[in-house]
Amino acid sequence: MGVQGGRPPAMNIVVLVKQVPDTATERKLNPADNTLDRASSDGVINELDEYAIEEALLLKEKHGGEVTILSAGPDQATDSIRKALSMGADKAIHLNDEALHGSDSLQTAYALAQALRTTEFDVVVLGSESTDARTGVVGAALAEYLGLPQLTLANKVDIDGGTIRIQRQTDDGYDVVEAQLPAVVSVVEKINEPRYPSFKLIMAAKKKPVTKLDAAGAEIDPAKVGLANATTETVDFAAAPPRAAGTVVKDEGTGGVQIADFLASKKFV
């Protein structure tokens, strides 16, 4: 994408959207194969992906172009794809194949990279992690598979011609990271405030094109994906222990001191 003076050329932006179990509901693993039981809870768009969609829409509003949603997941992921389209994205690709079931982060990144090869893009935007697995590595692995620059944990994105510059959030501030497009960007929630869908966009979303893609269509090597070929293994899991009863401090004149001591012991003060 070269700079041609005046308005930069329109951009093709792909947003990776993952459907995850609603964090407000009880989430379960399937004891048979230690994978997520996706049928046991409502699927919603991974929260950080909503920020990624918003950032893509803002980039489109500024530079023109198209926003494409790419989601890998089972049939029910169509609900999240429709929601993403109703926020204002233009079209979607749904990668859906039973062979992908149980893929770990690395395999998922490979599959997404293959799916991305079926479309044109200048920038790929994704949330920096998902609320279910929380590995936070898919963005980096994806960039590696594609051989593209990765700009992670962005709380600000600027694109000027063929150059992308982000503020990479750190513990005590931010780093400025710059790369040439095309590139992969992961975002954190400080970056923007995701918009609400409007009813007109909800209606319009029904008519937007969703390309169905299976493993063969994306030229995904079946030997490289799925639970049987995973590079990592979930060997065991256990339910979170029930919350222990709190400590009751009875105020007999020293309540304030005891609370201060407690907070100090936990390094809150």
């Binding site: 429709r82 929601k83 109703s86 609400y196 869908p197 409007s198 009813f199 909800i202 209606m203 029904k206």
Partner: peptide, 15 residues
Amino acid sequence: TSEAADLLDLTVSLV
């Protein structure tokens, strides 16, 4: 309809 369900979801979020 499914769009009516989406409309109610949107309304509940706003509320």
